[in-house]
Amino acid sequence: MSTEPADATGVTPRSECLALGQVIARIGDKWTVMVVGHLSGGPMRFNAIMRAIPGISHRMLTLTLRGLQRDGMVSRTVFPTIPPGVEYELTPLGRSLTGPLSLLAGWAGANRADIEAAQRDYDLDLAAVAPSRDGSRPAPG
């Protein structure tokens, strides 16, 4: 039994944090971002999504689409053809995610060079203080 105080709805801060973490994990996943981005243009068949996203495996696309479906962000429509045709489409909830993801992508694009420069500087600083193979450290400069 939790010793955390609950708010008026009976939710504890810890359970709220865990729930929020699960949502962030779903929408922050790189494959989710790419799938939502491609589906923002309209319904797509599985193989079309697969071709549109370089590097995604069949299994990872399946897992991503199932997760998005489970979370109510993607709908799956099966057409009675032979073989059955299946289309995936963003739901209204999924479409509501495209704005924030677009802003995030814009921020990432605008700041990419600064982030890469900071990473290079960090790596150079780290290399300067890393022990050499004989265990000695370079003299402070």
Rank of each mutant, 00 (worst) to 15 (best):
E4Q: 04
G106Y: 00
L68A: 04
G10K: 11
M1W: 11
M34Q: 12
E116R: 13
E87P: 05
M50G: 09
E16M: 15
G41L: 08
S2T: 11
D71Q: 10
G106T: 08
N47Q: 15
Y122T: 00
P138I: 10
V36W: 12
T32F: 12
H38K: 12
P13F: 05
I53A: 12
Q69G: 07
R133I: 12
G94F: 11
G106F: 03
L93M: 02
M1N: 09
G135T: 14
D114I: 03
A6T: 10
V11R: 15
W31K: 02
E16F: 13
R95K: 09
L65N: 00
T81M: 06
L90I: 08
S132P: 10
G42E: 07
R76G: 03
A139T: 13
R95N: 04
Y88M: 01
E89F: 08
P84Q: 13
A52S: 03
S136R: 12
V35C: 12
E116P: 10
A8L: 11
S75N: 13
W107P: 03
V36Q: 01
A130E: 05
V74Y: 00
I53K: 06
A128G: 06
I27P: 04
G85C: 04
T98W: 02
F46S: 10
T32S: 14
D134S: 11
T9I: 04
V35P: 00
T81N: 08
V74L: 02
S15L: 05
A130Y: 00
H38Q: 08
R66T: 05
G99S: 14
R45L: 04
I24Y: 15
M34R: 08
E87K: 01
P100A: 04
S132L: 07
R66P: 03
S15F: 09
G94W: 15
M60C: 03
A48K: 12
E16W: 06
P138F: 08
G37F: 08
P100F: 15
P84K: 00
T91I: 07
A48V: 13
P140R: 05
G41F: 02
G55A: 13
A52L: 09
V86L: 12
S132Q: 12
G41D: 14
L101H: 09
T32P: 07
M73P: 01
A52I: 03
I82W: 03
P92Q: 11
Q119H: 07
I53M: 07
P43Y: 10
V129G: 04
L101P: 13
Y122A: 00
L39F: 05
C17G: 02
R51Y: 05
P83Y: 08
P54Q: 06
L103K: 11
L103N: 09
R112Q: 08
H38N: 09
F79W: 13
M1A: 09
I53N: 09
L101M: 06
Y122H: 00
S96R: 05
T12R: 04
A52T: 02
R26Q: 06
D123T: 02
A6M: 15
A113C: 03
L20Y: 00
Y88S: 08
A8F: 15
P84E: 12
M50E: 15
S57K: 06
V23S: 07
L101T: 11
